[in-house]
């Protein structure tokens, strides 16, 4: 299965987001590189607003992700609650 990934800047704002992604995607692998974190997952990765809010302790608009996003891959589907990356193959 093809790998999807999301890469975020490594900073205080993204720490709880990365933790939330790990909670929601037990199959994901977190690679920590200088100044950035790249999260790989087989075929599909889901980012959930509600899990981020629990980790963060405040309301979170998923579009805030744009501020610290470095790169991603896969087909993107976004609504108010989730952002999903996936390959169809």
């Amino acid at each position: 299965m093809s790998t999807v990934f999301i890469a975020l800047q490594a900073n205080e704002e993204t720490r709880p987001i990365i933790e939330a992604i790990e909670i929601d995607n037990p199959q994901a692998v977190v690679n920590r590189q200088p100044a950035m974190v790249k999260i790989d997952a087989p075929g599909r990765l889901v980012i959930r607003k509600s899990t981020i809010e629990e980790q963060l302790g405040r309301e979170f608009d998923l579009q805030e992700l744009h501020i610290n996003l470095i790169s991603l891959t896969g087909n993107v589907v976004e609504d108010d609650e989730t952002l999903t990356l996936s390959w169809n193959s």
């Binding site: 800047q9 950035m36 744009h66 610290n68 996003l69 991603l72 891959t73």
Partner: peptide, 17 residues
């Protein structure tokens, strides 16, 4: 450079999409 690079790259995810 990290800063302009990653600041640019945060737009790049949208461009790629």
């Amino acid at each position: 450079t990290v800063t302009f690079g990653f600041s640019a790259q945060s737009d790049e995810a949208r461009h790629m999409t």
